[in-house]
């Protein structure tokens, strides 16, 4: 039997029009054998959480380059918990200053945060290690 397929939602929440990074990650995850659901740009936290629910994903990957991460990440995590999906692995990528990253992790809004310079291997290795 094959290993169970891991489903990852790659989402771009908020007013941020840059999705090259998200697409590169989506492609790399595909090549690593994940099923990647991509939502496109300008998603509200509610859209992200509802998509995660309908698609029954194992991982939510948020790409945020707008600076609004301290609002968006906790909001989405809360909506996931409200939906009974608190167990979903929340991974954030983007331009997240160190202090903010530390706070998001410490307060449990995200399980891992990646910033510019992190390699694809490291990101995929991290997600794979969780399943």
């Amino acid at each position: 039997m094959n290993r169970r397929k891991i489903r990852v939602l790659v989402a771009k929440p908020g007013l941020d029009g840059h999705d090259r990074g998200a697409r590169v990650i989506a492609r790399a995850l595909r090549d690593a054998g994940f099923e990647v659901i991509y939502t496109g740009l300008h998603q509200t936290p509610e859209q992200v959480a509802e998509t995660a629910l309908q698609e029954d994903v194992d991982v939510v990957g948020l790409s945020i380059l707008s600076g609004a991460h301290m609002t968006l990440v906790p909001r989405i995590k809360k909506l996931l918990i409200d939906n009974g999906m608190g167990e979903v692995l929340m991974v954030v990528g983007g331009i997240i200053p160190g202090d903010d990253a530390e706070k998001l992790l410490k307060e449990g809004h995200a399980e891992q945060i990646f910033t510019p310079g992190d390699s694809l291997d490291r990101i995929i290795g991290y997600i794979s290690s969780k399943f």
Binding site: K5, A26, R30, D31, A32, E35, Y38, T39, G40
Partner: peptide, 12 residues
Amino acid sequence: PFSGGAILGDRI
């Protein structure tokens, strides 16, 4: 057919 992965992008 190579990795078993997929990009599911119809939802966009």
